[in-house]
Design a protein around this nucleic acid. Structure first.
Length: 340
DNA sequence: AGGAGCGGAGGGGCATGTCT
DNA sequence: AGACATGCCCCTCCGCTCCT
């Protein structure tokens, strides 16, 4: 056996061990978290049972918090507030579940408290719990997604995926698109043209990718394609790692027009011919426009054989009347001078 | 080293319910 | 009706980790 082979074997083994250490650590943390949540569930259940059986109120919670804290001075997490949260946790989920549901068991306690505080419907809560576990959101991102009603937008974009893609791929593709997209990190005037939107999207690429969702890998803007000695440029090009296909995005700052479909259809054929590789699924088109009517989109997509979706997007626009009402620099300086 | 981001925790206080 | 109890939400603080 040559030295080089030994070297390669060793490197391979080392990387496999490293990976195993990581997954074991992760599983241990998850298991510990699950145990903790089971404890919280149990305490919540105990409090509810006591309150029902003895017709006790919150005073018992107060008392229990005091006693537990006195009993375990080093251990945190048993304050009055925390015990109330455990009680709420149990009351909320116990009509449907006898133990901590799987999606919820993967979340940190702080995330669960956020969901409990903001969501009153069990199904919607479970939606956010699984989305959060799947995407690894921090608490502030979870907050943002709830505020922007992700559960109402996911999978709602009108498309022809069902008609032109085979079953599992069409379902997955549909779930990937939202309607509308929230680009509220963009500040645009009424006259914004496509290139402005594109510029801002690219300079806010982290927020943009977060809003698009998991799996979108950014390949470029104004991506050049050579067809028949003529150059065409795609507004934005992505590869979706889970769908295993290219995603062509066309930006329109105005209302949806049927001819946009023809254009993106052409781009999709070009991408399928020039870029699509052996294992790649058919490329998908997404038209992002400021406005659309569902019927227009349905007609425009009806007899198109490339998978295309249409979503609108919402930005933080500065209305004209406010723009003209904004103070001038001189006015601000004057104001400041008065204060000092 | 220190700044930023994250998650855990608890205090303060508000809204509603209940008792006198 | 007013006083008091109860439930729980918002905000902030703290400690930890990771990155620069």
């Amino acid at each position: 056996m040559s030295l080089i082979t030994v070297h390669v074997d060793y490197r391979l083994a080392l990387s496999e061990i490293k990976q195993r250490i990581q997954t074991t650590q992760m599983r241990a943390v998850l298991a510990a978290n699950n145990e903790l949540l089971s404890l919280y569930w149990y305490i919540g259940q105990k409090i509810v049972t006591l309150q029902q059986a003895q017709a006790w109120g919150g005073a018992v919670v107060e008392e229990m918090a005091k006693d537990l804290q006195a009993e375990h001075p080093g251990i945190q997490g048993f304050s009055r507030t925390s015990l109330f949260a455990m009680r709420q946790f149990y009351l909320f989920l116990s009509p449907r579940f006898t133990i901590v549901p799987q999606a919820v068991g993967q979340l940190p306690w702080g995330h669960i408290r956020t969901i409990l505080a903001k969501i009153k419907d069990v199904d919607i809560a479970l939606f956010y719990a699984s989305a959060c576990a799947e995407n690894g959101w921090s608490r502030s991102i979870l907050d943002l997604q709830i505020e922007q009603d992700l559960h109402l937008r996911q999978g709602l974009a009108p498309s022809n995926f069902k008609a032109v893609l085979p079953a599992p791929q069409s379902e997955l593709a549909q779930q990937t698109l939202k309607d509308p997209y929230m680009f509220d990190f963009l500040t645009l005037s009424q006259r914004a043209v496509e290139r402005d939107v594109e510029n801002q999207l690219v300079s806010n690429i982290t927020r943009f990718l977060l809003e698009l969702g998991k799996g979108f890998a950014f390949l470029g803007r104004q991506y050049p394609l050579e067809v028949n000695n003529r150059s065409y440029f795609l507004d934005l090009l992505f590869y979706h790692t889970r769908l295993k296909c290219y995603v062509v995005v066309e930006l329109k700052t105005g209302e949806f027009k049927p001819e946009y479909v023809g254009k993106i259809n052409f781009y999709l054929s070009a991408v399928d011919d020039l870029l699509r590789g052996e294992g790649d699924q058919p490329s998908i088109g997404l038209i992002l426009c400021k406005d659309k009517t569902r019927l227009d989109v349905e007609y425009a997509l009806r007899d198109v054989n490339k998978p295309i979706g249409v979503s609108s997007f919402i930005t933080k626009e500065i209305p004209i009347d406010i723009q003209t009402q904004l103070p001038t620099v001189a006015e601000i300086e004057e104001e400041l001078a008065g204060k000092l």
